[in-house]
Design a protein around this nucleic acid. Structure first.
Lengths: 151, 151
DNA sequence: TATTGTTATACTCTATAACTATA
DNA sequence: TATAGTTATAGAGTATAACAATA
């Protein structure tokens, strides 16, 4: 607090903090995933379709909160890399089931480790209990209700 | 933990949490600012040029971490609304000093209150001490060093 | 008629390159 | 030569509209 400057107010704006913290996280996670030849969005798709449930493209898109038209190119990219596979749903031939290939499963596991390592770097400034509190707070803020409140 | 579903892993991914929490914040703050006819970026510019220091366009851009070419349209918009004013720097005529008009100052103060109210809504799921801890954690994570660590 | 995947298209956001004026 | 502001342009990212296949 001793060297307060004009920039201080800007940098303490909550919107600024959130934006730049997210930017730092994406940078770290992105660099980790780059070693496996995928980006953050593709990683999110891998996690989604590797979750155990059989998902159509649209269901996977919904789970990620993106448009089904956006999902097309994402799955294209993963298919080109040999990490995911499309197949017709046997009972509803309009749907594409999207699933991991063997390579995709292997990449997913490697990516988990890379991302976990990146998160360790990201969270280095916080103690273990503070990391837990931080994540709990995020989940409560996302729900937007008062379930997480205990004062 | 009783109704664990496939979506659970996705929604607990840290990247997902951060992205959607930011999205919720922007939605709330954006809706608050919309009542004053400005958006989040214009609000950030108002805060910057209202900080007390005399700033050129480029200096304001740097303070916000955006490009000087992007700043042009932002200042254009604020000038059109009568909230900001360009004037030549007396000692270096290449520079534009950007400052608030009387209306701009008034809008800035109104916006402060609107944003504060929006943040109150945003943070409703957390207790007061938890809000402080959350903000402290964000600042530590942004610095990226271990200054905030005390375990 | 409605839905899924797809394509084409448009829109937003932002950065890069090039120009003008000033230094 | 270098810098500040500006403009034109291009690229990434994503959404909307329209179409084919299927329900």
């Amino acid at each position: 607090m001793s060297d307060e400057t004009a920039g201080n107010e800007i940098e303490n704006r909550f919107g600024y903090l959130l934006k730049h913290v997210q930017s730092r996280y994406q940078q770290l996670a992105g660099a980790a995933l780059e070693q496996l030849g995928i980006d953050g969005k593709q990683w999110a798709v891998l996690v989604t379709i590797g979750s155990g449930e059989e998902l159509s493209q649209q269901e996977a898109a919904n789970a990620l909160g993106i448009d089904r038209t956006t999902m097309v190119a994402l799955v294209d990219g993963l298919e080109d890399k040999g990490l995911a596979r499309r197949s017709r749903h046997p009972e509803d031939r309009r749907k594409n089931i999207v699933e991991l290939t063997t390579d995709g499963r292997r990449t997913l596991e490697r990516a988990r480790k890379k991302v976990a390592a990146a998160e360790q770097t990201f969270f280095a400034p916080l103690s273990s209990p503070d990391i837990d509190k931080f994540k709990t707070a995020l989940r409560a803020l996302l729900r937007g209700d008062e379930q997480g409140r205990y004062e």
